[in-house]
Every structure is written in C-alpha cells, then in structure tokens.
Amino acid sequence: MVGEKRTWAVVLAGGVGLRVGADRPKQLLDLAGRTVLERSLAAFVDHALVDDVVLVVPATHRAAVAGVAGDHVLVIEGGAERSDSTRAAVRALREAGAGDGDRVLVHDAARPLVSGRIISDVVQSLRAHDAVALLVPTPDTIVQVDPVTGLPGEPLPRAELRRHQTPQGFGLGVLEEAHRAAADDREFAATDDVTLVQRHVPQARVGVVEGEARNLKITDATDLAVARALVAED
C-alpha cells in the first residue's frame, strides 16, 4: 500500500570481540549450532512486524558474513565508530526509499537472545513515540569514582538506575536529525541512539519498554558461556 509505514531493523555488527579472546569476530562465534550473528538476524528476519533488515559490518568483515546474512538481509559497510555505522544505515534506508515516518529498530548484533516480545513491544511503542528506549534495572550497587584517586563515592540510588539494551526504536526522520546534529557536536559522545535523540531532538517523544536480563550483550568469554547455557535450557 502506497504511503504505508515500514519497519526496518538495523543490526550493527562492528565489534571484533577482542575481550572474548577468540580468533574471529565475536558475531561469528558458535552459539549452540548457529553463530551469534545468525541468531541476532533471525530474531528480526522471522518477526512478523519487521519488514526489512539491514546488517552493518566493517569492510574487513563483509566477506566473512556474506554467507551468514542470507538473501533477505541488505549488507552494508559501516564506519569507524558506532555512530558512523548508524549514519551509514540511515543513508542506506533513504536510498532504499524509506520515509520519515518509517520505523527503525537499531540493534547490537552482540545481543543474540533478544526476544520476540521485546521487538513487538518496541514496534508498538513507536506508534505513540518518536524514540523508544529499552531499559532494565541494575542489580548492582553503582558508584561514581573520583577520576584522580579512583576511590568510590556515595552509592547512586539503585531504584532510579536503569541499563540501556537494544533494540532501540525510532522514527527515521528523528534518528536522522539527531545524527545530523551530533556530527557537529564533538564534545558529546553517546554510546546509544536514544541518548543522542534526547540531546539533539529535545522535543522528541521518548517511550520506554522493559527489557530482559536474558537479552545480554556478549562482550567477553563469560557472557558467551552464559548465553550458551541459556540456549541449552530452551
């Protein structure tokens, strides 16, 4: 239908996984018979509310993931930083005909256990919001350390603390506007896109969806072992 909003999933696979200690990018490590990347992509390719999937990879990894992505995924090259890769994805979506009102889910490939419930809730929340954060409580006590001595200060109020997860959701126009403004803001480096929207598009309506502890990010060997144990329990 002409003018119908589409939902695009952007999967960022830029990490090399040095902390995992493997001989290959962490996205290509085995997770119960499938690679981490295959599981992350399948969560979106197989979801009824997602129309198209874009995979963003470094140029050096493009050949390695070619056989993993499959025919239903558009593979593009990213940039040096996460924000560069997101901007590359936005350009690719525009070239593919995406409009301002289209919905974009930005997901880290290193989170292969994202659930269908999470994806559905983020897409649904975008019907009423311009951006959607996926948040989970932190079980740990968090303190801010002195930058000189390294000593801990007073604990931050844990009841008010949350951790960002992905996918985060956006209207394409809002995501594009935030990154356009961020390109001129060298003093601020956001590690996620919702924070970028809140800083550069303050009028944007931001919604919140509850994440899941299972939706962990694989950054080291322990995370990979936990993910394998979780899959084994399914």
Rank of each mutant, 00 (worst) to 15 (best):
P152N: 02
E4P: 02
I76N: 04
V56T: 06
V65K: 00
D46I: 07
L134H: 04
A88T: 06
E233D: 14
G78N: 01
R39Y: 00
V148I: 14
A89I: 07
E212K: 03
A69S: 07
R34N: 11
T86W: 03
R158V: 12
Q165K: 05
A80V: 09
L28C: 02
R39C: 03
A189D: 11
L196I: 09
V104W: 04
P167Y: 01
A98K: 05
T195P: 04
A109G: 12
D223E: 11
G78Q: 01
L175V: 02
D23R: 03
L31K: 08
R199T: 07
L224Y: 00
P137S: 11
H179T: 02
A229K: 09
A204I: 03
G150R: 05
A221K: 01
K26T: 05
D193C: 12
T166G: 07
P139M: 09
R127T: 13
R205E: 08
A66R: 14
E77I: 12
V206Q: 02
T60V: 15
V206K: 01
L37T: 02
E38I: 01
E233N: 08
H61V: 09
E212L: 04
A227K: 00
P202N: 10
W8A: 06
A133Q: 12
T60K: 13
G3A: 14
G97Q: 07
V36I: 15
R214M: 10
Q144Y: 14
A225V: 07
T7A: 11
P58C: 02
A43P: 08
F44V: 04
H61K: 05
G70R: 03
E95Y: 09
I118M: 12
L55F: 01
D140Q: 15
L126D: 03
T60G: 11
T191N: 09
S120P: 00
L29T: 02
D23S: 07
V50Y: 13
H61M: 10
G14P: 00
R163S: 12
R162Y: 08
A227I: 00
I142E: 07
R163H: 14
V68Y: 01
G171V: 02
E154A: 15
A63Y: 06
V226S: 00
A96D: 14
V132Q: 01
P137R: 06
G78E: 01
H164G: 05
L18C: 11
R6C: 09
D193A: 13
R214Y: 09
G70N: 05
A22S: 11
L28Y: 04
S125W: 04
A181G: 08
H129A: 13
E210P: 02
G101R: 10
I76V: 15
L12E: 01
G116V: 11
F188E: 06
S85R: 03
G33S: 07
E154Y: 10
A64P: 01
G169C: 09
T60M: 13
L151H: 10
H47S: 05
D52G: 06
E160I: 08
Q144V: 15
A32Q: 05
S120G: 12
A22D: 04
D108N: 13
R163G: 09
P147G: 03
V122P: 02
D184V: 14
A96V: 09
R62V: 13
G211H: 06
L151T: 13
I76W: 05
H61Y: 12
P202K: 07
R228Y: 05
V11G: 00
L49Q: 10
T195D: 14
T141K: 14
G67R: 03
G153Y: 10
I118W: 04
T141R: 15
L230A: 11
R82Y: 00
V16L: 15
A128R: 15
R111P: 04
A109T: 01
